[in-house]
């Protein structure tokens, strides 16, 4: 159908969206989406719904199962938590997916189950190493890297320690120095007094 539906970025729909026609979502939708045409989730789109359409393109965030009659495209920057099912599924580098991926239509997929899941697993596995592992690995080295730095900090701590130490020393010396100073003065003064005397 020529008419298309647009959910603007400042709009929020809670409930069921159904019918024929294309759907472009830049806002938020909670509930269910079942349309006959193409559904495009824009970068600002935030969906908490199961989506069923002939074609689904995701650039935003979706939490729910996606079922497409023709094709399903997860583009870079998209985040999907849910199962994907379509005859053709594309996950672009940079697209995040967490869920089961199955190519092939629902009815035809079962006989081909051996082939379809194999294909499905590959993109899923590809997607996970590309996106998910790097952060933990990067995080671990960071954690590992953190311990080494402490030694230098220790040095730096040791360095400032003297700086800090003098202060306490000064603080501690306040009672101390007067003692030596006084005798020195006393000695000097006594000697001077004696000489003068």
């Amino acid at each position: 159908m020529a008419t298309s539906t647009v959910i603007g970025r400042a709009s929020f729909i809670r409930g069921r969206v159904s019918g024929d026609g294309d759907l472009e979502i830049a806002g938020r939708v909670e509930g269910d989406i079942a349309v006959g045409g193409e559904v495009v989730i824009d970068t600002s789109g935030l969906i908490a719904a199961n989506i069923s359409a002939s074609r689904i393109v995701v650039r935003g965030a979706v939490k729910g199962d996606l079922v497409a009659g023709e094709a399903l495209v997860i583009e870079a920057g998209a985040r999907v938590v849910g199962d994907l099912r379509a005859p053709r599924i594309a996950i672009a580098p940079g697209g995040l997916v967490r869920g089961h991926v199955q190519t092939g239509t629902a009815g035809a997929a079962r006989p081909r189950a051996a082939a379809a899941p194999a294909r499905a697993v590959v993109p899923e596995v590809k997607a996970r190493p590309v996106v998910a592992p790097p952060p933990p690995r990067a995080a671990l080295p960071a954690v590992k890297a953190a311990p080494p730095p402490p030694p230098p900090p220790v040095k730096t701590v040791a360095a400032p320690a003297p700086k800090v130490a003098p202060k306490p020393a000064v603080v501690a010396a306040r009672p101390g120095p007067p003692a030596p100073v006084v005798p020195v003065l006393k000695k000097g003064t006594k000697a001077v007094q004696k000489k003068r005397g």
Binding site: M1, T5, G19
Partner: peptide, 28 residues
């Protein structure tokens, strides 16, 4: 152009909230 359009052939059952213009050609 209106920011949110409910096109002909589309039915929304539930609540539609928007901070912008809404055009309804379908069903709400």
């Amino acid at each position: 152009m209106a920011s949110t359009v409910i096109g002909a052939g589309i039915t929304i059952e539930g609540e539609v909230t928007s901070d912008e213009d809404v055009v309804v050609q379908g069903t709400v």
